[in-house]
């Protein structure tokens, strides 16, 4: 029984079947990659997990509780954090302030932030934020205005913001999309470091299978809204169905 169980999920957009009978199980403390060509339904699937979309049929269970019908912030409070395809951070805030918001959200819950206690007095949370920044090599940037950082740093910061919440499941939507080769490698290295340092369950959506090869414990291949195969990376590479799915793609 995985921490995330997707059962018989279907999702249509008008006449288009974006997801057809999707079943997926993510085991705790593993990295599970979901790969597939463009338009396979990867983002649609992820959006069904985080509360942005509701499947037409089927169920999505996280740690034994259904996430369907819950709002994104409620699902986050259940322990799922997500990284966006293009980094989403609080651009007007400093790096440190960006780190404090997820910590407040986790400690005080969705509705109970303090209105009079000073942020400066939160020594314990600040230490946690600094430790996390240290982990992603960003401690020296803690007082920087986050909007003025490079895209790679924004990606790092966004991951740190998610990780500092100690999520039980971290979802990443094409974390390397649109990145240059060097940035892609940096991001993958960062994810490997994160995986090595702590117990973490990750589900990574990725277009390019080579990116996740060295990182994933299991890979699910999605094509035209349906999972084709699920296996360990070594068996995925040469799989005829996978070759077929990616045929005609120049990637």
């Amino acid at each position: 029984m995985g921490i995330l169980e997707v059962k018989d999920v279907n999702k249509r957009f008008g006449g288009l079947k974006a997801l057809t009978d999707v079943n997926l199980s993510v085991t705790e403390n593993t990295v599970h990659a979901i790969i597939g060509p463009n338009g396979a339904g990867k983002s649609t699937l992820l959006n069904c997990l985080v509360g942005k979309l509701i499947p037409d049929t089927g169920s999505v269970m996280f740690d034994g509780h259904s996430v369907l019908g819950r709002k994104p912030f409620e699902i986050n409070q259940m322990g799922i954090s997500r990284v966006f395809q293009t980094p989403e951070i609080f651009g007007d805030l400093t790096v440190m302030e960006n780190m404090m918001i997820p910590l407040f959200a986790r400690r005080d819950g969705a509705y109970r932030l303090h209105a009079f206690r000073s942020v400066a007095s939160e020594a314990e949370l600040r230490e946690r934020a600094e430790a996390m920044l240290e982990d992603v090599n960003m401690l020296d940037k803690r007082n920087m205005h986050s909007a003025s950082m490079s895209r790679g740093d924004k990606r790092r910061l966004e991951m740190a913001m998610c990780l500092v919440q100690e999520p039980r499941l971290l979802l990443l939507d094409e974390p390397t999309a649109g990145m240059a080769r060097a940035d892609t490698n940096n991001t993958i290295d960062l994810l490997k470091e994160i995986k090595a340092k702590r117990d973490i369950t990750m589900a990574i959506i990725e277009h390019d299978m080579h990116v996740v090869f060295s990182l994933a414990d299991r890979i699910t291949v999605l094509a035209q809204g349906t999972p084709l195969v699920e296996d360990v990376p070594e068996n995925i590479k040469g799989h005829p169905k996978v070759q077929e799915a990616y045929l005609g793609e120049h990637a």
């Binding site: 997500r82 609080f90 651009g91 404090m100 959200a105 969705a110 932030l113 209105a115 009079f116 913001m161």
Partner: peptide
């Protein structure tokens, strides 16, 4: 306060806030 900082975060990026709980 954390509340005040969150109000600035609302101005900055509501989407991020929503997925931050």
């Amino acid at each position: 306060s954390p509340f005040g900082m969150t109000l600035r975060a609302i101005r900055s990026n509501q989407n991020r806030l929503y997925y931050t709980g």
